[in-house]
Nucleic acid binder design. Structure first.
Lengths: 159, 159
DNA sequence: TTTACTGCAAATATTTTGCAATATC
DNA sequence: GATATTGCAAAATATTTGCAGTAAA
């Protein structure tokens, strides 16, 4: 699907959600949604704030927090908490199924494609829990940090 | 394995870690480790602080934060960030493989056993990423909240 | 004896909230 | 016109940090 078509669909879903909940359709809300759907990876509020307001002031932090909560609630945006004490987000619709490799040392997050986990989860009996989405985080050391750690270990032994 | 044996093993591992890193073996650190291994579910720092200091002051919050970081770094404790802006933790050693069902509405977290995901992940090529552990979070509505949501929806329509 | 660790209180960082002005319905 | 939403600043919450006293090595 072309990017514009995706956004049209997402926009419609958001409208439906806003109407259903009795919320107002403000330009800020649509602008934020549109901006998020131009981003190709996960982001935090601070990044979103700066990239939206790069040229001139567009929205306040308070509105960002308010809006992103609506987007998460409407399942158009996924919220992650990767371990730093700052939430990360990413668009939910039409994003390829992927999991996150998180480096415990440098905090770097890498996304890798995955099509296996989904079927395993769907095969599970979750009692009557109504699943909306899932996140798989794999922790460990990235190539770079694993190298550094080995060097350090060697150095320590030598000393 | 009996609970005491588990703790002995964990204690030894912690000692090895502390010595390797040149950290001191303080009574507070061992007391916190022991206390954590008596807990059977995940917990946050505030809960840990209150349960340890229930009868009389034992450790400060600063020491808890300091110690738990060492425990996470030594892979004896797993850190979770479930979405609230407060970290949760759980013992890592000898805990049964499980995943977390998180209710997006009430925030309730339920653990369910799982032995399938592990093999799927192990079958994956993670380049040269050195895996230490993983966490699978499944989001949705718990039975209770799903019921409430339906009621609300019906009520709203009626109005 | 040296210096890492503890505990307290102050500082920081992220998110939430109160309130007046504004814009949607 | 009524009131939900915005933007700003202040408040709240979780975590980190500086520092003096204490204790491990």
């Amino acid at each position: 699907m072309a990017e514009e078509d995706i956004f049209e669909k997402v926009k419609q879903e958001f409208t439906t959600y806003l109407v259903a909940k009795g919320h107002r359709k403000t330009p800020e809300r649509y602008m934020i949604l549109k901006h998020i759907y131009t981003l190709d990876t996960h982001f935090d509020i601070d990044y979103l704030f700066n990239s939206i307001n790069a040229d001139r002031p567009m929205v306040s932090r308070a509105t960002l927090y308010n809006t992103i909560e609506l987007l998460v609630d409407s399942n158009l945006v996924i919220k992650h908490s990767f371990g730093s004490n700052m939430a990360h987000y990413e668009k939910a619709y039409n994003s390829e199924s992927h999991l996150h490799l998180i480096c415990s040392s440098c905090g770097d997050i890498k996304e890798i494609k995955d099509h296996d986990i989904k079927s395993v989860i769907q095969g599970k009996k979750l009692s009557k829990f109504a699943l909306t989405h899932y996140s798989l985080y794999i922790y460990g050391l990235c190539t770079k940090c694993a190298r550094t750690a080995n060097k350090k270990k060697t150095a320590a032994v030598k000393k």
